[in-house]
Design a binder for these strands. Sequence first.
RNA 1: GCCGGGAUAGCUCAGCUGGUAGAGCAGCGCAUUCGUAAUGCGCGGGUCGGAGGUUCGAGUCCUCUUCCCGGCACCA
Length: 642
Amino acid sequence: MPVVTLPDGSQRRFDHPVTVDEVAGGIGAGLRKAALAARVNGKLVDTSYLIAEDASLAIVTDRDSDGLEVIRHSTAHLLAQAVKELFPEAQVTIGPVIEDGFYYDFAYQRPFTPEDLAAIEAKMTELAQADEKVTRRVMARDEAVQFFRGLGEIYKAEIIASIPDKEEISLYGQGNWVDLCRGPHVPSTGKLKAFKLTKVAGAYWRGDSRNEMLQRIYGTAWPDKKQLDQYLHRLEEAERRDHRRIGKDLDLFHVQEEAPGAVFWHPRGWTVFQSLIGYMRERQNAAGYQEVSAPELMDVSLWQQSGHLEKFGESMFLTHTPDKRVYAIKPMNCPGHVQIFKHGLRSYRELPVRLAEFGKVHRYEPSGALHGLMRVRAFTQDDGHVFITEDQITSESVAITKLILDIYRDFGFEDVRIKYADRPPNRVGSDDIWDRAEAALKAASSAAGIEYTLNKGEGAFYGPKLEFVLRDAIGRDWQCGTLQVDLNLPGRLGAYYIDEHSTRRTPVMLHRAIFGSLERFFAILLEHHAGKLPAWLSPVQAVVLSITDRQDEYVRRVTETLKNQGFRVESDLRNEKVGFKIREHTLRRVPYLLVAGDKEVAANLLSVRTRSGKDLGTMVPETFAERLRVELGSRGRQVLEG
RNA sequence: GCCGGGAUAGCUCAGCUGGUAGAGCAGCGCAUUCGUAAUGCGCGGGUCGGAGGUUCGAGUCCUCUUCCCGGCACCA
């Protein structure tokens, strides 16, 4: 006699066990049709689930995030079914839901081609239109293993063998195809109406590069065609924002074959880069940091001592020199900073000692990892190392966290998530030291009043860390800042200070970066702003344009005056129509276009237009300068047009 | 590093089954002096990523290689 409680609190009484589908039908035919799955007592189940006892029930439709997930999961199954029909020898493995879609990994004798993809998608559409019923059954573990072995699906058999004993083994079938799956799934394939296969790729079995490579097919699925189209449109938008595209269009930088993973910065790009450095330098100095510079090349023995060579030797650049010594090009700045700290006797009274460097580091990243400015082999860190006593960990960590968050706000990133990463399997230092470091960093987090999610086992090899993740304008997350507590390296490298009892003590070192990699942060900014950098970062902040050559002298004079005040201003005296000039500079994302025709010259005015096409009217050059100064000083919070 | 795809003019791209390279934009020249996203006409420009090979003949076919792209793995 189950009593079913619905989300609105109402109850329905049955004198026999009922399926979700029946309950939905009892509420309304429309709901029954829309039902994809359900939550019974909070657990996600199929619509065929039999409710035998009192339970709470929420029907899941495509309006719920649960529903979307079910759709995607079922579409992954549809994909596997289609592949098995077209390529019977392919073996199925796993097919999970991911952000915006799903994938399915197959073991097959050859990679799938784009043509295969089209054929598979067509077959999927056909199978969906056939509206085949999806059925579920439970099988004993050994029986299931035998079953899949019998089908020649050795991967599935292996997966089942690894499922914990207490879990039920469920199989889902549609048409003449059966797959192992936890479920739930849509009641029939006809519920899958808007999907698209997006790409093929290789992927290692169980994510381990020592294993064989499988053929992965990615796809996306949505409740309806409209949402699918919106998603595809979003992908196009992301492509338009690609920093590699923008970098080319705006003539900011380039890369070439002779220097894989390294950047040739062009004048405009370097101007922006220098603005970032200038800004950070100002903020760091104000926060009590001292800027330093350590050698690019140091004897490899130093890296042996620090432990980096052992852990990361494969990705270090080493040199061959006539003196037969082996020097490493620095892959990071910390050992250099420790040398600076060590030079001379340090008293506890001096701590915290905060050293910062815009250090260019080189890492031999795997070739397949390189990606535009996001992942390079030569990059610049805004690296800082703070030497402190153990008592100072909390207060200093709080100060750093606040600085990081405040700086992100200056760049328009308000939505910042923080992750706490604890000890990795591969590490140096005793468990006792790790216990203390982890406890101190956690204490600092709560003192700073921040919330974090745990990134288990993702810490640095010498200490736990906080990772700061930005969310950009189109919702993508980027890990940039980091704060790491290190009770290992200073000791390994022989750093010490003299405490109040005249005894030598090993300092704690905090590693911190705010931009992380300047190259990468630059790319994130370009994509976040779609190339329209705020004026304070724009390589060219304004262009003064003439309409005919009668204004040449005036334009020259105004440009000079603005440049002398420190603004990045250019003039455009070319014999071109003003519309052409406007178009060109707009495409170059110059924030302000200052037009001077005969009327403006006569009255000592400038006609001001923004890159978004807004006409700000005319004003005297001094007014423009004053308002631009305010905008730059407020880092774009007070814009000229406001 | 692994799987797949790609590389043709400064940029974006075309070039069927092998028969000595083409467009648009950009550049340069000339004309035009023009009011807020493209003025007109003309001209120049490529050892087709690199090295080998097959062929009478290779941008096109084969092998190797470099780099780039999409994933995977990696990311101090």
